[in-house]
Every structure is written in structure tokens, then in C-alpha cells.
Simulated assay, not measured.
Amino acid sequence: MTPERQTGEGPGRRARLRVALVLAVLAAVIALLVFYPPDELYLWLKALHIVAVISWMAGLLYLPRLFVYHTDAPVGSAQSETFKIMERRLYRMIMQPAMGLTWLLGLYLAWSVYGFKGGWLHAKLLLVLLLSAVDQYYGRAVAAFSRDENRNTGRQWRIWNEAPAVLMVLIVILVVVKPF
């Protein structure tokens, strides 16, 4: 008995359905929280924001590692084609929805709790914009890899892997310490 390949259309369709189901449940939870707010709505939205940030950061840290390995795979090989599927699914089904929720919930929290005031908050928003730019750069790289047009070396992708980590550290320090 041969195990089913995870790169075919069937597993891809099932993965998309699972992601759609998770997003629908999350949307329903957010709708319930907004239309039937509990006493501690802020804490619920903050918890969902943190979950979205963790999901987005996981993708931002893992995707460039896939690029490193993909760079070493011969163009047109089965390994290269598998990396294309992994990269596309990670970016479209995990990273993009997580980034959207991070922004949506984060902006709502910044407005409702802080009224968009505070130097630390403005600095944090600037760093999150930079993190979003890194995300978009990775999205263009996913498209380039899918066309077999990667221009970066494995070493360059290793360096790019550090950008989200550095930004994440700075953002967490701003949020927790609120230095200004």
C-alpha cells in the first residue's frame, strides 16, 4: 500500500477546505464577540490577535527556510515541484489570512484602547508595516519560484530569514515596555 501523496489535487482541495472551515469558525467567533460582546471583549480580541500574530510569524520564519532548500533543488525536479506547492499553500492559506487578521484586530485594538495615541504605538505600526513589506517580498518570491525564476542564493535567503525575527523582537519590546 502506497501512502497518498500530499502534493496532488485531492490533498490540496482538502487543505483548502480545512483552511476555509477554520477561517469560517474564526469569523463566527469574531462576529459573536462583536455582536454579543462579553464583559471582557478586549481580552478576547487581544487573544485572537495574538493567535493571528503567532500564525503569521510562524509562516514568516518558515517560508524563507523553504526557499533555502528550494534554491538547492534542481529546476523541474520532483523536489522543486513539491517545494512550490508547500510555499504556495503556506503563503496563501496560512500567512495571508493570519496577516489580515493581525492587521484587522490590531488596528481595532489600537483604536478602541489607545485611540491611536502613543509614540510606542506609532513605532510599532511602522515596524508592522515593514513586516508586511517583508511578507509581500516573500509573496513575490513564491511567485518567482513557481515560475522557476528565483534570483537569490541560499545564503541570501538565510539572511532574509532574520528580518522577521529582528522586527518581531523590536515589536514585542515596544508592546511590553512601551518606552515612549
Results as ranks from 00 to 15, higher is better:
Leu121Arg: 00
Met57Pro: 00
Ala141His: 13
Gly12Pro: 10
Ile159Leu: 15
Ile94Asn: 07
Pro38Phe: 05
Ala73Gln: 02
Ala15Asn: 12
Leu125Ile: 02
Leu107Pro: 11
Phe116Val: 03
Phe35Thr: 14
Trp160Val: 00
Trp111Phe: 04
Leu127Tyr: 01
Leu45Cys: 04
Trp103Ala: 06
Ala163Lys: 08
Ala78Ser: 11
Met168Val: 12
Val172Gly: 01
Ser77Gly: 07
Gly106Pro: 03
Phe83Lys: 06
Pro179His: 10
Ala31His: 04
Gly118Gln: 10
Trp103Met: 09
Ala58Trp: 11
Lys84Thr: 14
Pro179Gln: 08
Leu105Arg: 03
Val176Ser: 07
Phe83Cys: 05
Gln156His: 07
Pro11Thr: 01
Arg158Cys: 01
Lys178Phe: 09
Leu63Glu: 08
Gly8Asp: 11
Ile171Asn: 00
Leu131Met: 08
Thr2Gln: 13
Ala133Asp: 05
Leu109Thr: 04
Gly8Phe: 02
Leu48Gly: 03
Arg89Thr: 04
Ala144Glu: 11
Leu167Pro: 00
Ile50Glu: 14
Gln79Ala: 12
Thr102Ile: 02
Met86Gln: 14
Thr102Ser: 08
Tyr62Phe: 15
Arg147Tyr: 07
Ile159Lys: 14
Trp44Glu: 12
Ala133His: 04
Val25Leu: 11
Lys117Ser: 13
Ala98Val: 02
Arg151Lys: 11
Leu66Gln: 03
Ser132Ile: 02
Val175Gly: 12
Gly106Ile: 03
Val75Ser: 07
Ala15Phe: 09
Leu127Ile: 06
Ile50Tyr: 14
Ile85Met: 04
Phe67Pro: 01
Val175Glu: 14
Thr2Gly: 09
Val142Ile: 01
Val19His: 09
Gly12Tyr: 04
Val34Asn: 10
Val75Met: 03
Glu162Ala: 15
Leu21Gln: 11
Ala110His: 03
Glu4Ala: 05
Gln136Val: 14
Leu26Val: 12
